[in-house]
Design a protein around this nucleic acid. Structure first.
Lengths: 372, 372
DNA sequence: CAACCGCTTTGAAACCTTTCACTAACCGGG
DNA sequence: CCCGGTTAGTGAAAGGTTTCAAAGCGGTTG
């Protein structure tokens, strides 16, 4: 770090104005010379109030700078007008895209979304959940650190609707929205096999993540379908799904003797794939000629890589919007039934498996597969 | 889109259990056979309560599944135990890193951070601000769509502390935290000049963004310092700071006649730079030999690009944590003085200007500049 | 003239927690 | 046995909004 000392520029201003008590409905009522109930009517059921009175009240509100007190409102109503998404990793574009889908639905229902970031830490997640429950939020969407956490079931029982996003778990008794990860793995590896690859690295880990396990299962199924033995899948396991781990995997891959070295790699997510890609090029392994690469998630940076990355796309926004709709149904519909909604992933083929440069119009069009 | 129809998997469970009213302090008091004031003491000043009584109360809380009602608590206290960061673009890793810095400070002060995303839309930002004010949040950190928006000053006057993040503006009367963008632009272009470049593209826009204007001013200053005329800076202006716009700029750059074509490009942010890099390689322009590239922000994906990107780093987390500290001071210290805190950027030199592959130990070490 | 109507406005209760002045009980010392 | 002092626990008030039954009002109908 060179020079990160803060530099106060201006000595600055005389501090805030003396903060006298914020005006409430009572003050507005007094100013407008009506009862406090009338003010409330103007706010909540304006059609009940005569135009003249309404106008007077609105004027008074503007004059006083009245701001509704949401706490008091919620206290009376029993619940808030907001919902929350507790995300696993705010730095991963996948989750921010999911959040966008959630926000679309929430905005339509006139709810505000609070984004909370657990950063994959269980106790930070727990703190957020406690606080949200105390806030009596309308409901919680969450991509949990651990989907089987009994805290989630408890929340649900205590009356806060909870929907799992991009996860599902038998132990959790509620709605969930997720993508068929086994199929995703199968699509990826089938694509590689169709392009002539028969020794394929599986890069990902730790195995405690259900996503990793399922995507590997899909990879094995693709091998089986093609009549290839399971040992053609060469494990390069990582301790996390990060760019740095992807780079490390590339070094291990480069170290393998030529005849055992895989000609292609399937990475459990795009961050790992980008790291692998970067280090392969640096080590002189040409992509895709020496080693084809498939990633997972199809984040925007995948298409923007210097060798655009073939990746398995998940319907991120749809995942978010569907989850939000399930949540609203659970919160509002007394006859709600819990649902597990599964989506289908699709492969987006790009230069990292097709060759370089990608030609949109002539690139291989695989049935059920999107070429971009 | 191939197959994104949702597939309900399980017909599922019998809906939620009949939600009877959540227990409050009153119920706990009854169950523990103490007065309601005592329960409150257990919660807020446990040292005043005898161990025996406290134990009884805690047991009752556990039995009943008591959850504090934050609304009622806030109503009494007059303000909430949370603060908010309204970010300009949740999909840009720069802002999520800033958010991390904020969260560190907030967690230490036992406050919860609500992340809100304006997505560069003024009305969405306005909705968030309204709601946050109604919530009586402790304070608001914001990277606004428009820093001169009078709404921000009004919030401040009405008693909600506001701190500008990564922006500053004379029209706003409060604290702000930002980085010296003129210096950042100067560092970038000085670095290119030192590496022998004399025709340099400036890629960025629109000019309405203060960041763009200031970084360009810095670029011009670097030329002047080196005794080069200002027309050596070739404008390639974009309509937004996105990857797609970066690609478009590369096409325009490739279209220039060889003797007028710049030998280097300075991009206003890393997204633009990554797009430019990608398209240059695709069009056969070697990086850095035919065209060196410098980005801005040093997001993680910059280092992870296949040709790692030289970029101007801003102290993102520090930006966030400093802003949060200013906010807390403003909220708690009656003698608070508004401050404008400026940070210094630094250049991180990588292969996109130094050559390929980057050798950490032998790469040019420019004074005041970090080589990675 | 009384009963009734629809429309507008009112006043008080309720939501749940925290705070604070107060009492009760107990201690040891005088 | 009373006193001053400490500690534990009490009960009522307060905080701002919403809701709802009821009242006021001007006019119409039987």
């Amino acid at each position: 770090m060179a020079d990160e000392e803060p530099t106060p520029v201006a000595p600055a201003a005389p501090a805030r104005p003396a903060a006298r008590r914020a005006p409430g409905v009572k003050d507005v009522a007094a100013a407008a010379e009506v009862s406090l109930g009338t003010v409330s009517n103007v706010l909540n059921r304006p059609q009940l109030v005569s135009p003249r009175t309404r106008q007077k009240v609105e004027q008074a509100m503007a004059d006083l700078g009245f701001v509704r007190n949401e706490s008091a409102r919620q206290l009376r109503a029993g619940h808030s007008r907001s919902l929350a998404y507790v995300m696993l990793d705010a730095a991963n574009p996948f989750f921010t895209d999911v959040a966008t889908g959630i926000e679309e639905v929430a905005a339509a229902a006139d709810l505000v979304v609070f984004l909370c970031n657990s950063g994959e830490e269980a106790d930070r997640e727990a703190r957020h959940l406690d606080h949200l429950q105390q806030h009596r939020v309308h409901g919680i969407l969450i991509t949990p650190v651990n989907a089987a956490d009994e805290r989630l079931s408890r929340l649900q029982e205590q009356g806060t609707p909870v929907v799992l996003v991009d996860r599902t778990d038998g132990a959790f008794h509620g709605c969930s929205v997720f993508v068929d990860d086994v199929l995703g793995g199968e699509l990826a590896v089938a694509h590689l096999i169709e392009h002539g690859h028969e020794r394929i690295a599986f890069v990902g880990g730790p195995g405690t993540l259900s996503q990793v396990r399922q995507r590997r299962a899909g990879a094995l199924r693709a091998l089986e379908n093609a009549g290839l033995p399971p040992d053609r899948l060469i494990e390069l396991s990582t301790s996390a799904l990060t760019v740095a781990e992807g780079r490390g995997a590339a070094e291990r891959l480069a170290g393998l003797p030529a005849q055992r070295r895989p000609t292609a790699a399937f990475c459990t997510n795009d961050l790992v794939a980008l790291g692998l890609l970067q280090m392969c090029v640096r080590l002189g392994i040409a992509v895709p000629n020496d080693c084809a690469i498939v990633g997972y998630d199809d984040i925007d940076f995948a298409a923007a890589a210097t060798v655009p990355l073939t990746s398995v796309r998940q319907p991120r926004r749809l995942l978010g919007s569907t989850a939000a709709e399930l949540l609203l149904d659970e919160a509002n519909n007394p006859r709600h039934q819990h649902q597990q909604v599964q989506f289908t992933p699709e492969l987006v083929a790009r230069a990292s498996t097709l060759g370089h440069p990608a030609q949109p119009h002539t690139s291989t069009k695989i049935p059920g597969v999107l070429a971009i």
